[in-house]
Design a protein around this nucleic acid. Structure first.
Length: 486
RNA sequence: GGCGCCGUACCCAAGUGGCUAAGGGAGCAGUCUGCAAAACUGCGAUGCGGCGGUUCGAACCCGCCCGGCGCCUCCA
């Protein structure tokens, strides 16, 4: 059974959904005003993997991930570029999908947008006003923090401490410095929607409450996001949601750690961030970075730990992945009907499947899950030396496929993995310029084989060098034939 | 000032009271090979930032110290 760390209680807890067999989870998505960076990638990946694992263990998952498409930063960006907010959000939603597709992040089952839930948002604010938990000031509506007595229970802060440490300019109209906007009256030229308090737009926190409740119910299972959302965003979501319904909002709060650069948080102000597309587009053959490499890298650290991004780390991920794909090539070799190591391999495979599940059950310990996969690689290579039947080879390949699918890894064939120009790259011509066709490669390999047979090793090495210059590596089999890889 | 996190081999990274401290990458040596690649085998922390303490027993618990970081303000 899955045990997961719940920020609300500060401990790992056995995970049991409210409705047996179905998990309802909500994850804070992105504000669509710019390209996603690796930090966004990590967050998306963590919850993508959690969702995949829940499905793997048999749950149906209702997974909502929102797009924040009304926001100060969007308005600012639109004004800077002299285009509409809709134009900005459409552009970056498209970019988001492109990036996520390359990372292999699956679509959520529900992807609500704030602009499409104004009625829900307004209704929720009205409820809070009616209950005396929110008050109106001019065209704005604020949530009154001290009307929610357990405010601070998620982030373990006391209102008094916050007050003492507050560095933000306090809006004098607020009754308490920590009160936050549910509804903001709009200034001329800003996008706005009608409301009982005049034209305006929602505050940042209210949209998530309204959309989560609309799609998943007043109480649902998992709510996720980056660590930095614990306060104030998720704290405020809890206050306004629980304040409105009198019920618990999300039962398990899950937060992922940051991606860092040289041990510092990536941030725009430090100028040390990398966008996902930049990493893909700047990398060049033969060191091209693929989505799978980034995935492997991001999953090789536990989701709650900080993780340092560097080219070196991604290269290590690539090498680790390489060993796996080399094994797959071996598994494809012609094989006899019976193998001496079949039985042993079958048992090993089962044992590792269990180890993999144990790792994932332990608060989604992907580094251990990956280690299990690597362990299987070693065992499979050994079994191959001892003798594996064609059937068993296929079974081993299937094992990698099914476990890999939980992490979103190992779903490709070697060829697709190491040839970014073919499938991963989006219209990059550079890679294919000096690439050889399969036929040309086959011709040269045949020529080399002939040279080898006539003991003309000089010619054979020459042909191998030529292929190498095109990024083709030759591996000779024991029987004298060769396989190749890019 | 408040709340919290991290420090494990050359690098990345699991392990959070009790078998020889996972796994990967890099390196070195060996087997195999015309050579190479791949694969396999072996080597690699008597020690887990430091010093004390608790315990039969600690990388894991407690205290202090050193070093690094995060949140408290938009932020994955």
């Amino acid at each position: 059974m899955l045990r997961i760390y719940n920020t609300l209680t500060g401990s790992k807890e056995p995970f049991e959904p409210m409705v047996p067999g179905t998990v309802r989870m909500y994850v804070c998505g992105v504000t669509v005003y710019d390209y996603c960076h690796i930090g966004h990638a990590r967050s998306a990946l963590v919850f993508d993997v959690l969702r995949r694992y829940l499905e793997y263990t048999g749950f149906a998952v209702e997974f909502a991930k929102n797009f924040t498409d009304v926001d100060d930063k969007i308005i600012k960006r639109a004004n800077e570029q002299g285009v509409s907010c809709d134009r900005i959000t459409a552009t970056y939603i498209k970019a988001y999908y492109d990036d996520m597709d390359r990372l292999g992040v699956r679509r959520a089952t529900l992807e609500p947008k704030a602009t499409e839930h104004m009625a829900d948002i307004v209704a929720l604010v009205e409820t809070l006003v009616a209950k005396g938990m929110a008050y109106r000031v001019d065209g704005d509506v604020y949530f009154q923090v001290d009307r929610y007595p357990v405010y601070g229970r998620l982030s373990k802060r006391k209102i008094e401490d916050l007050q003492a440490g507050a560095r933000v300019d306090v809006d004098e109209r607020k009754r308490h410095p920590m009160d936050f906007a549910l509804w903001k009256g709009s200034k001329p030229g800003e996008p706005s929607w009608d409301s009982p308090w005049g034209p305006g737009r929602p505050g940042w926190h209210i949209e998530c409450s309204a959309m989560a409740m609309r799609h998943l119910g007043e109480t649902f299972d998992i709510h996720g996001g980056g660590m930095d959302l614990i306060f104030p965003h998720h704290e405020n979501e809890i206050a306004q949601s629980c304040g409105a319904t009198g019920k618990e909002f999300a039962r398990y709060w899950v937060h992922n750690g940051f991606v860092q650069i040289n041990h510092e948080k990536m941030s725009k102000s430090l100028g040390n961030f990398f966008t996902i597309r930049e990493i893909f587009d700047k990398s060049e053959w033969p060191d091209a970075v693929t989505g799978e490499m980034l995935r492997y890298f991001l999953l090789s650290t536990h989701y709650r730990s900080p993780l340092d991004f560097s080219d070196h780390s991604v290269a290590e991920a690539k090498n680790a992945l390489n060993g796996l794909y080399d094994l797959f090539e071996r598994l494809k070799e012609p094989a006899p009907a019976h193998g001496a190591a079949d039985q042993q391999m079958r048992e090993t495979s089962m044992r590792i499947r269990q180890a993999f599940a144990d790792a994932m059950d332990d608060d989604v310990n992907t580094p251990n899950a990956v280690a299990a996969l690597q362990k299987l690689r070693g065992e499979a290579n050994k079994a191959l030396d001892a003798g594996l039947s064609a059937e068993m080879r296929q079974a081993v390949r299937e094992e990698f496929r099914s476990l890999g699918a939980v992490l979103g890894l190992l779903q490709q064939d070697r060829w697709q993995f190491s040839r970014p120009g073919s499938r991963e790259s989006h219209g990059t011509a550079a890679v294919s310029v000096n690439a050889l066709s399969d036929e040309e490669i086959a011709d040269r390999i045949a020529a080399r084989l002939a040279a080898k047979q006539s003991r003309d090793y000089k010619r054979a090495d020459q042909l191998r060098a030529e292929l190498a210059s095109h990024g083709i590596l030759i591996e000779d089999r024991p029987d004298g034939t060769s396989r190749w890889k890019r």
